[in-house]
Each structure stands twice: as structure tokens, then as C-alpha cells.
Design a protein around this nucleic acid. Structure first.
Lengths: 215, 215
DNA sequence: CGGGATCCGTTACGATACTG
DNA sequence: CAGTATCGTAACGGATCCCG
């Protein structure tokens, strides 16, 4: 939505949120920065169709509103600045999760593994199904591996920071997770077919499946 | 965002969701219909600033995409059609909740009770803080009253349909709930000041406060 | 009077080209 | 590499008008 005209007339937190997050591309830029810090060119490549002028403008207004900050590149060479999320920007992750979960049925069947971003798979198809009730009393760490990317998860909400020895390691590709959540496959079938490999204790696996609703 | 240009190039459920929900005004129209079925003129009045042509177009495309349906008015007189949410549209309520919660700190302090919509207060400041872990094992019904509007809530997620005798009735105005969530007031203070009145068992009240994080 | 449709000026967007 | 400049097009906001 246009940055100049806002939903000012409404006393509503949704309207306020959309004033900041509702512009075209804004949430997708944010999603990119959840995955990793990125430079201008990275973002441009990962957001097919965005005009460079629009990207410039969005990055500026997102910085103004405290969603992101720019950090001088530590890479040395020619690169100048890297864009990073702020804590306030990270608070919008639940918004992205809710959107992702709603959009999952609209997603066509993946044709190729490389189509599916690892972050989408983990955050949408696994973390998005986290069941805090099922997780009560469990304190375990899980390591999700998608290709060569690693995503630590915890049975305790917000307890994923410490990089301790995981109780369970799960290896697979991104597509399998989407297939499972679109009901073309069950977790059990994927394991039997060797599409998902697990290493760890039997009870950790049982907990994992219960906490993330995997049959 | 423009309805014609979509985030087609991305294999991402967030992009898909935004293709449908991301247009300017769309989520706010949906929010209106969560509150109540409405006619064209109602929507226009409740969405200050929307151009009638835009409203027409949004209603059409939202219907095309299965978010809403139009129902012939049962009211008789001059009115023709009433807009209602579909089940698919209702599935987007978590998106609105996430946005609302994110937007709450951006909301200025309410100046007048009538500024605050009852639905915002209940859905954002109460239901949005539901803690399923705290609710485990509790099966109670709560009735929230804001002015003359009533909102049944349940300690069991999705169990609010049956209109049984509530275990707890809470009377207040919308502003108080916003004040509480913006940390200008605690629940206990509001009760002592008579801004919130409760009727029901002592344990139901304790459960309610625990489940919805009210100190 | 409710429910829109038409027209118009302004703004934002997308595509391509260009520059420090 | 990291943007800026320019330009044509599409969408928006506001006002007005039309029809039952």
C-alpha cells in the first residue's frame, strides 16, 4: 500500500500494523531478512520482479520505521552495506507464520527441490505447527537439516539459541515437508521411503512427532 | 497491492497469501466482516477513506477468491445484498490477530471509549493472549460484555459455539482492555477501580486470569 | 436513501537505462 | 555492486452522478 496514504482514520491495531507492514514487498523483504542478512543485490535477486527503485524506497522506509538496520559490510571487498532485522522486525515473524500457513494450500505442488526455500519448509511446515500443549514438560533440542542448511529447534518456545548437543537430528529435503503438509505424504511414509532420516533417541522422535503434529 | 501483478515468481506460501490478502483494504474489509455481516454502505462508513470504486472492486475479487460471499438481504426494505465471510475467509483470522498484536504498541492512547471497537478489544487484547498451555485441563465458558455487546469465550480453543451458562461474566468497556495491554493499568487495578466487574466463581476467575495473562 | 458507476487528477509501480 | 534517473502504465482517492 502506498506509504503516503495511511489508514489514519481508524483506531485499530490491524490498521496500524498495515500502515507499517502493508506496503507491497515489505513483508517479503522482511521474510528474506529472517532467512539471512542480505545486501541490496541479494535481495534483488531473491525477490524477482521488484524494481530497484522500489527496493531502495522500501529499505529506507523500513529502516525509518525500525524494522531493519543497515550494517557496514564486514566482508571487505566492494560490498558496502548489509541489511539486518531489528528486534522489532523479528516480532513480526508470527505475522509471517500466519500468512504462510494460510497460503500453504494455495501453493502448487513443488516441481523441483530447488523451488522450495529451506526456510519456508522449516518455518512453515514444521515450526508453524508447533503445539505448546504437546510440548509441555519436554525440554529437548532438535536439529533440522535441509540439504546443507541447519535449523536448530527446541521443544521450548524461544529456547533455540544455545547450540547444545541435539537430542534428535532430522535430515531431509525441503520438498518433503511441503508434501507432508499438503497431505500427499505422511511423516511415517517419508521415513519408510528414506526421504527423511532421523538420528537420536526413540523418545525424542516420539516427542518431536507429537509436538509438531506429524503422523 | 495491485490485483493484476502478483508475486508469481516466488515459490513461497507467504507470497501466495499476499497475492490474495495483500491488496490495500482487503484485510480491513475482512476484519469488518469478522465483526458482523455488512452491506456496502456499512462497509463504506466503517472504512473511512476507501473510495467506493475500490470497495466495489475489492468485494468482487474477494468473492472471486472465496473469501466472502454475498447473500440477498433478509432485511426487506431497500437493501439488496449483504456481504458475509466464508469459512476460508475465517481461516485468515489468525493473520489478523498476529497483525493486531504487532500493531498494538503503535496504537495511540485511546481518547474516547467510542474510538475503540469492541471487537478489537476482545479479539486483540483478550483472545490474542490466549495461552493453550495454561488452559490445559480447564473446561469453562466466559462471557465478555463490552457495553451492550456480548462475546462468548471458552477455555477450550474453538469451543465457544454452544451458548451454555457461562462460568464467569466480565463487564467492562473496550478502552480498559487496551489500557491493560498497553501497560497503563493492571487487571487487578481495573477491578479495584470498578472499571471491570466480574460475576462467577472464584476459581473461574483465577483460571481466566491465568489463561489470558492478566495480572 | 442505499448501492453503486463514471470521470479525473495524483500517486505508486514496473521496466529499462544509466552512473559512482 | 549499489543504487539513481526517467518514463509509461496501472491503481488509488475524491467528487459527482445515476438508478432503483
Amino acid at each position: 500500500m502506498p506509504a503516503t496514504v495511511r489508514y489514519d482514520a481508524q483506531y485499530c491495531p490491524i490498521a496500524r500494523a498495515l500502515d507499517v507492514l502493508g506496503d507491497r514487498w515489505t513483508l517479503l523483504i522482511l521474510r528474506e531478512l529472517v532467512i539471512a542478512d542480505q545486501r541490496f543485490t541479494d535481495l534483488r535477486r531473491n525477490l524477482p520482479g521488484i524494481a530497484p527503485t522500489v527496493l531502495t524506497q522500501r529499505l529506507r522506509s523500513m529502516a525509518d520505521q525500525g524494522l531493519i538496520t543497515t550494517r557496514p559490510s564486514d566482508g571487505g571487498a566492494g560490498a558496502r552495506s548489509v541489511y539486518t532485522m531489528t528486534a522489532r522486525g523479528r516480532e513480526a515473524i508470527p505475522v509471517m507464520r500466519a500468512l504462510a500457513r494460510w497460503g500453504l494450500p494455495l501453493l502448487e505442488e513443488p516441481t523441483d527441490d530447488r523451488d522450495v526455500r529451506a526456510w519456508s519448509a522449516v518455518n512453515v511446515a514444521i515450526a508453524g505447527y508447533y503445539d505448546p500443549v504437546a510440548a509441555a514438560g519436554v525440554d529437548e533440542r532438535y536439529l533440522i537439516r535441509i540439504g546443507d542448511e541447519e535449523f536448530p529447534l527446541s521443544s521450548v518456545r524461544g529456547g533455540g539459541a544455545a547450540r547444545e548437543e541435539p537430542d534428535l537430528v532430522i535430515d531431509s529435503n525441503a520438498r518433503v515437508w511441503i508434501d507432508i503438509r499438503q497431505d500427499r505424504l505422511t511423516f511415517a511414509q517419508a521415513r519408510r521411503a528414506g526421504l527423511i532420516r532421523t538420528r537420536g533417541g526413540r523418545s525424542a522422535l516420539a516427542n518431536f512427532r507429537r509436538i509438531f503434529h506429524l503422523n
